[in-house]
């Protein structure tokens, strides 16, 4: 039995919408609404979904850049969901994040070496002399050169910057890395370099990944298990093979059918969804997907489906399966 590294229990994140002179709260943006899942040590858990589905917000709650409105996040059995900044410091070493746009997340005025040494300084590890050596070692681990230490972020290409982003996440040897669209801004040839690097590092450093992406082929390549999100809800969770061979939720089915295949001979049966994703401020009653679902039933408009284990290790939140 695999050991659970992280458990997310019925987590919600509501952003308040304020208006007027007194900034009264007039509504909530239910970015993440009652999401639960767990991650085993050493695996890669992919989260897929379209823009606005709450996948990044979920990632930011796990790294505690956001505090959940409700619910629990357990890391190695400790509830980190409502810790203060001071109490969190210990956990920050264990959970790190890689961002989509590595340029926006690197301070343009600081040399790469200084940027990478920062976590050591904050956590007071290694003497000043040792730090440079450690950073140079790290640069080589992610496929850069030790002499990149003195360069500035603008001197690097997109792919190299993402390597720096990864190096920075690795400095404190974390157990869990949350990667939010780490390859979306990169060209295909560079994307494959970064994906290979992440896989290699996972083996070498026994890392657990949460890999957030909208690209279903990339998520499939890197993940062991995958969760599909739609409008703040987790609609399906399954092992990679099950999800791609036998998607249960109508949303997952249409999502998979919509991906263009790089093979001109394949003509896909496509389920084209009508309309757009509704707003999270005023989500539909009942199942949030019912407004676009090709298999909608009367029940879907009233009752919210819960995530249930339909087949071993294959969870789905849909009335078709209850």
């Amino acid at each position: 039995m695999a050991e659970k590294l992280l458990e997310v229990n019925q987590v919600k994140k509501y952003f308040t919408i304020q208006s007027g002179f007194l900034q009264r709260t007039i509504g909530f943006n239910k970015a993440v609404d009652n999401v639960s899942f767990y991650i085993n040590r050493g695996e890669t858990f992919g989260i897929v979904g379209e823009s606005g589905c709450g996948k990044s917000t979920t990632g930011k709650m796990i790294t505690r850049l956001y505090e959940p409105t409700e619910g629990q996040i357990l890391f190695e059995g400790n509830d980190i969901s409502h810790l203060s900044q001071k109490e969190l410091r210990k956990f920050r070493r264990e959970i790190q994040m890689v961002f989509q746009d590595p340029y926006a997340s690197l301070n343009p005025r600081k040399r790469i070496g200084i940027l990478l040494e920062e976590p050591y300084k904050i956590h007071n590890i290694y003497s000043e002399k040792e730090r440079r050596g450690k950073v140079e070692e790290l640069l080589e681990i992610v496929g850069l050169n030790a002499d990149h230490y003195d360069r500035y972020p603008h001197e690097f290409s997109g792919g190299q910057r993402q390597r720096i982003g990864i190096a920075r996440a690795l400095t404190l040897r974390p157990k869990l890395i949350v990667a939010d669209e780490p390859v979306s801004a990169l060209d295909v040839s560079i994307q494959s370099q970064i994906l290979n690097l992440m896989k290699k590092l996972q083996k070498d450093f026994h890392l657990t990944y949460i890999f957030i992406s909208h690209d279903l082929s990339v998520v499939k390549h890197i993940s062991d298990r995958i969760g599909v999100m739609y409008l703040g809800k987790m609609v399906e969770i399954a092992e990679k093979k099950d999800l791609y061979q036998d998607p249960l939720h109508p949303y997952t089915q249409s999502l998979l059918s919509a991906v263009p295949v790089p093979n001109p001979k394949v003509k896909k049966e496509r389920i084209i969804l009508q309309g757009d994703v509704p707003s999270a401020v005023n989500p539909p009653k009942g199942c949030v997907f019912h407004t676009r679902c090709p298999k909608v039933m009367a029940q879907c408009k009233q009752e919210v489906p819960t995530l249930q284990e339909y087949k071993p290790k294959h969870y789905v939140a849909c009335h078709l399966y209850s």
Partner: peptide, 17 residues
């Protein structure tokens, strides 16, 4: 063409230029 991860095939290491 070799560097795109495929929805059908299972590969461990992607080709990269």
């Amino acid at each position: 063409l070799a560097s795109i991860p495929s929805l059908e095939a299972e590969t461990d290491i992607l080709y990269s230029i």
